[in-house]
Nucleic acid binder design. Structure first.
Lengths: 346, 346
DNA sequence: AATAGATATGACAACGTTATCATTTTCTTG
DNA sequence: CAAGAAAATGATAACGTTGTCATATCTATT
């Protein structure tokens, strides 16, 4: 038989206290004697009481619901974000909702607003490309909805964020290639308007200039962050009269595409061509040769985002404590695997 | 300024009807005149009214919340499941919660029960390995919680499911290798107790027998469904005195591992070794050579699961309609890419 | 001992929806 | 055209929690 779940009323009866007192215990409020608190806790444990979230959120207080709002489902990136978010949410008793949103719609901001309101969400975590939609950001600020952006392209005072220094990271991995002796390094860009695109290209240019080189338009191609989008650009780069000895793809999926094209042309890797990516998703060590790439600590970033968001929520309820620092920059590092080597002499 | 979201009371006032009548319109109940319905609809549109889910679920009716419960986060499989679920949920106004659950805990069933109750979930979707936890299944049946299992290892009358015929699929892809002329085909198994493990191995055996061959223990290895778990088994297979000319890994991630080991040993693929996987996750066409594999229509299965679950919920509310068919078997197909070829003569 | 303040507790309303039941209006049908 | 059934509508009570406010008890200060 399905026994009815106990309510706060049952707990009150068992503990011999009033409903409100039980509520006080649940919420760690002041003004409950140690003795009563004890009795109530015991009753809760005995009945295996768990508060009904719907009732809690109906009162407008909190729903223990957080949503991850994103535009591009299925990227391997998305999965790792969720793992990180989940890890922290679970530990704190929050639940994670995932919502895909059509970021090209004219009324994105309104949709997000509705979502938050309908479900009484406590807060939201945004990933690209919604991270940089002005309408959405303005709405969130005006409606005072707690939120954290992961890897936004620009920081804003009214909006918390977690990111790595993408520009420096891109420079670092380019320097790795330069140190190996590569001087003609191809680059495949990401989607125009996407957050990382310009920063990564910028870092690439920074590193070249550090070696006294100027970026050569001839070896810079436009990609779209997907595996397929890098195939044609890679082919073009490899059929140049003077082809690059290394290629830096703006993310790992595109780097995998470059590898495929190279294999298909019979190149032997990494001797004939070094390839680097960006992100260090799981894929990067499953391809051959395993990719040298920049490790974005995606899970950690998501974890930090969840932590930050939850801290903001706590602070909002008890403004006494220290205000959480709204911007975090996590360390990146270059992961050297087997897809890079010094250029072979010709 | 943040305007208060309209409630049903506001709609009633604007439409000049009672609260209950508005509620009737919202829920498509009988006994509302066409004219009144019209007026209410107009008022709702005008105010951009959206019902508060917390209040709805507090009344015990429905929360429009569905959870995907799984044990193994981060598998590429998980991501695709979510895409499929999301697609259908969104279209029907449901929201998707993701919950990782420690399937080895003694009280899994209780945890799931609490989860459902606390959040007033309308239903849950289960993927491996929680799909085959007897405690959980019994609890779901007893507590009458609507649920759908994706790819369970055994069907049960009291539990809806969506799957492909894994055994037949495994046989099909083995036949593909046999047809190419391979006679010594290695096999890397998945995790013991995991759903697909025995079915896939069974299909492999079926196909061999169809060609009058008996499975040879020497070329059957134990893996664990992850990339890393296949590296040692692959190495052992390839160092046999009489190594297999083809290897069937129980999933694509392990197949990627086999490819890496083969590359590392300097084999030329697919001439020296054919490799096949299972699932057709995104990874499979990003590795080199792209994997011949069995396409499990994962997104479609998830989509079907969501559809089925939502149909079950509808039927539960209005038992007049036709009862949804609780078990669906979706078609699979062998995707031939470049990781398979006839064996080279020696 | 009187009083003010802090501590401890509970009664009751409220959140926004749906269910129950009563009431009014409209439609059938003999 | 009466009268009973069906359709249409609304008043009010729930759902399980938290906020407001009132009250009772304790502690510290005069």
């Amino acid at each position: 038989m399905v026994e009815r779940k106990p309510t706060i009323i049952d707990v009150a009866r068992v503990a011999g206290a009033s409903i409100k007192t039980v509520s006080r215990v649940m919420n760690n409020e002041r003004y409950v004697s140690a003795e009563t608190r004890e009795r109530v806790m015991k009753a809760m444990a005995e009945l295996k009481f768990q508060p009904n979230r719907s009732a809690q959120s109906l009162k407008g207080d909190r729903s223990y619901l957080i949503a991850h709002i994103y535009g591009d489902p299925g990227g391997p990136y998305t999965g790792e974000i969720q793992i990180g978010l989940l890890r922290h949410c679970r530990a704190e008793g929050y639940h994670l909702l995932i919502e895909e949103i059509d970021y090209s719609a004219a009324d994105v901001a309104e949709r997000v607003h509705n979502l938050v309101h309908q479900l009484s969400l406590d807060g939201v975590v945004l990933t690209a490309p919604v991270t940089d939609n002005d309408d959405v950001l303005q709405m969130l600020a005006e409606a005072d909805i707690p939120h954290v952006r992961i890897t936004p392209s620009v920081e804003r005072a009214d909006s918390a964020s977690v990111r790595i220094d993408e520009r420096a990271a891109a420079a670092d991995i380019t320097l790795h290639l330069l140190a190996f002796g590569h001087r003609r390094i191809g680059f495949i860009k990401g989607l125009p308007n996407h957050a990382g695109t310009d920063l990564r290209y910028g870092g690439y240019c920074d590193a070249l200039r550090e070696y006294g080189l100027e970026p050569d338009e001839e070896v810079v191609e436009q990609g779209g962050f997907t595996y397929r989008s890098s195939l044609a650009p890679a082919r073009r780069l490899l059929t140049l009269k003077n082809p690059p000895t290394a290629i830096f793809a703006s993310n790992d999926e595109m780097a995998a595409g470059v590898l495929s094209v190279a294999h298909d042309r019979g190149l032997s890797l990494p001797t004939d061509l070094s390839v680097v990516g960006f992100d260090d998703i799981q894929l990067s060590e499953m391809v051959w040769p395993p990719l040298t790439t920049v490790r974005q600590p995606i899970q950690d970033m998501a974890d930090a985002a969840a932590e930050l968001l939850i801290a903001m929520l706590a602070h909002r309820r008890q403004p006494d404590g220290p205000k959480p620092i709204p911007h975090r920059v996590l360390p990146h590092n270059v992961v050297i695997r087997r897809s890079t080597a010094p250029p072979s002499r010709r």
